[in-house]
Design a protein around this nucleic acid. Structure first.
Length: 403
DNA sequence: TAGGCCATCTGGTCCT
DNA sequence: AGGACCAGATGGCCTA
C-alpha cells in the first residue's frame, strides 16, 4: 500500500522548489543537489533556544505565505492512521473540541426540505480554526527546530571532515564515509599511541581505508599517491634536495607534535638537539620527535595532498581538536599559520624504499627514517600530553575497530 | 535511468 | 507541555 505523500497531507510541507524560490538561497553543497533552506549560521546551535531566536528567516515568510495562501487540500486518498497529521486527527478524536468538530463532520449540506439540521450548541468555528492554527504553528516550529538540529549535526560533520585525512572542500566525503574514515583515523592514531611505533605507510593507509567505499579509498590513496610521486620526483633529483624537500614538507604541519612523545623506531629518529619539551606536560616527559619526517617519511595526506588542498578555494582550516577523546590534548597556541597549510598533520613523508606495496599501492614505506623534522616546532606550538587515564589495550582497540 | 546522497517533513518516543 | 531525538518517507540533484 502506498502512503500518501507527505506533500499531499502535510501541513508544513514546502517543496524544495518552492523553498528555493522563496529563500533565494543557493546550495552551498557541491556534491549533491539538495537545497538547504537557509545557510546555517553556526555555531548558533542552542538547544535551549526558543522559537524565534533561531527561527529560520524564511520560515516567517512561509508563515505569512501560508496565511495568504492556504496549503493545498490533501487529496482524497486514504491515509493510514499512523501517517495522519494532527490536523487530520483533530477532525476525529480531538478531546477539546472534538464534539464541535464531530458536529462539523455530521453537518451535511442544508436539507432541501428545510428540516433543521441538528440541535445543540453552534459549532465553535473560531476555536477550531485557532486550534488548527496552533497545530500548524507547532508543527512548523518543530520543523524549524529539526532543521536547525540537522544543520548543527551537519556542521559538526563538516568539522569532522576537516580533521580527517583527505579533506577537500570541493569533493566532500559523504556523511557515512566521513564517519568511517574518522573511526579508522582515530583507531590508527590510537594504535600509534599505544604501541609507540609508527606503522608503515601501507598499513596506515589500509587502516584508514578499512570499510570505506571504493571511491573514498581511491580518494585517500590518491591523496597519498600524488604526494608520493611528487616526492619521488623530488628525491630523484638528489639526496640533498630530497632531504630539503622533506624537511620543508615536514615543517609545516601543526600536528607534527602529535608524534612527539614517541621515539622514532628508525635509526636516528630525532637528531640530537631536537627533543621536544612540552611545557604543557611539565614534569611528565621530555619527548623526542616522532620522526616521521626527514629522510624517511611519507608525505602527508593533508598537505597539498589533494589538489584542492592547495587551491585558493580551500578555506582556512579549523583549529585542530583540543581534546582527542580524553586521550590527549592539543593546546593550540597559534592558529595563524594554519591557514597556509592543510589542517592535518600526521605526516607521512614519502620516500622511495625497498618496501614494495601491493598492486594498488604505489607508495613506498621507509624503514629508515634517519632524520626528523628540524623545524616542526618553529611555526606551530602544540602541547601534547598524555593524560593519566588508562588506555585501552591494543586488543581492546582492535576489537572495537574490527567490530 | 538507476542509484547514491542529501535536506526536509513528519510522527512517535523520551525526557525535563 | 514542550523540546530533543529518532527513524521513516519523500523528492531533488548528481553521477556513472
Amino acid at each position: 500500500m502506498a502512503w500518501v505523500p507527505a506533500r499531499a497531507v502535510g501541513i508544513g510541507v514546502i517543496s524544495q522548489k518552492e523553498r528555493k524560490e522563496t529563500s533565494g538561497e543557493q546550495s552551498a553543497r557541491t556534491g549533491c543537489g539538495a537545497m538547504p533552506t537557509f545557510p546555517f549560521h553556526e555555531p548558533t546551535v542552542m538547544p535551549e533556544s526558543q522559537f524565534g531566536a533561531n527561527f529560520p528567516r524564511d520560515l516567517v515568510a512561509e508563515l505569512r505565505l501560508r496565511k495568504q495562501e492556504p496549503f493545498p487540500k490533501a487529496e482524497p486518498l486514504p491515509v493510514p492512521p499512523e501517517r495522519r497529521t494532527p490536523e487530520q486527527d483533530s477532525d476525529k478524536d480531538d478531546g477539546e473540541d472534538g464534539a464541535a468538530e464531530e458536529e462539523d463532520a455530521d453537518e451535511g449540506p442544508p436539507d432541501e426540505h428545510g428540516q433543521p439540521r441538528r440541535r445543540g450548541p453552534r459549532k465553535k468555528k473560531g476555536a477550531s480554526k485557532a486550534r488548527l492554527d496552533r497545530v500548524k504553528l507547532r508543527r512548523m516550529e518543530a520543523n524549524a527546530r529539526e532543521r536547525n538540529r540537522m544543520h548543527g549535526l551537519n556542521n559538526a560533520l563538516d568539522s569532522l571532515r576537516r580533521v580527517v585525512p583527505c579533506y577537500s572542500k570541493t569533493q566532500k566525503l559523504s556523511k557515512i564515509e566521513t564517519l568511517r574514515l574518522a573511526k579508522n583515523y582515530i583507531w590508527a592514531l590510537s594504535e600509534i599511541l599505544s604501541s609507540g611505533r609508527r606503522p608503515d605507510l601501507l598499513s596506515f593507509v589500509q587502516t584508514l581505508c578499512k570499510g570505506l567505499s571504493q571511491p573514498t579509498t581511491n580518494l585517500v590513496a590518491g591523496c597519498l599517491q600524488l604526494n608520493a610521486r611528487a616526492f619521488v620526483a623530488e628525491h630523484s633529483g638528489g639526496e640533498a634536495a630530497a632531504a630539503a624537500a622533506a624537511a620543508a614538507l615536514c615543517a609545516r604541519s601543526p600536528y607534527d607534535a602529535l608524534y612527539a612523545p614517541y621515539p622514532s623506531p628508525g635509526a636516528g629518529g630525532t637528531p640530537p638537539g631536537h627533543h621536544h619539551h612540552h611545557p604543557g606536560a611539565e614534569g611528565a616527559k621530555t619527548f623526542r620527535s616522532y620522526g616521521y619526517c626527514g629522510g624517511g617519511a611519507y608525505e602527508a595526506f593533508y598537505e597539498s595532498a589533494s589538489p584542492e588542498c592547495a587551491s585558493p578555494q580551500l578555506e582556512a582550516p579549523h583549529s585542530p581538536p583540543v581534546n582527542f577523546n580524553g586521550i590527549f590534548a592539543l593546546k593550540h597556541e597559534d592558529a595563524g599559520d594554519l591557514a597556509k597549510n592543510c589542517p592535518y598533520g600526521v605526516r607521512y613523508c614519502a620516500v622511495p624504499s625497498r618496501a614494495g606495496l601491493s598492486q594498488s599501492a604505489v607508495f613506498r614505506a621507509s624503514s629508515s627514517s634517519s632524520s626528523s623534522s628540524s623545524s616542526s616546532d618553529a611555526r606551530f606550538s602544540y602541547d601534547v600530553h598524555v593524560r593519566g587515564q588508562a588506555y585501552p589495550t591494543q586488543d581492546d582497540l582492535s576489537a572495537a575497530f574490527h567490530n
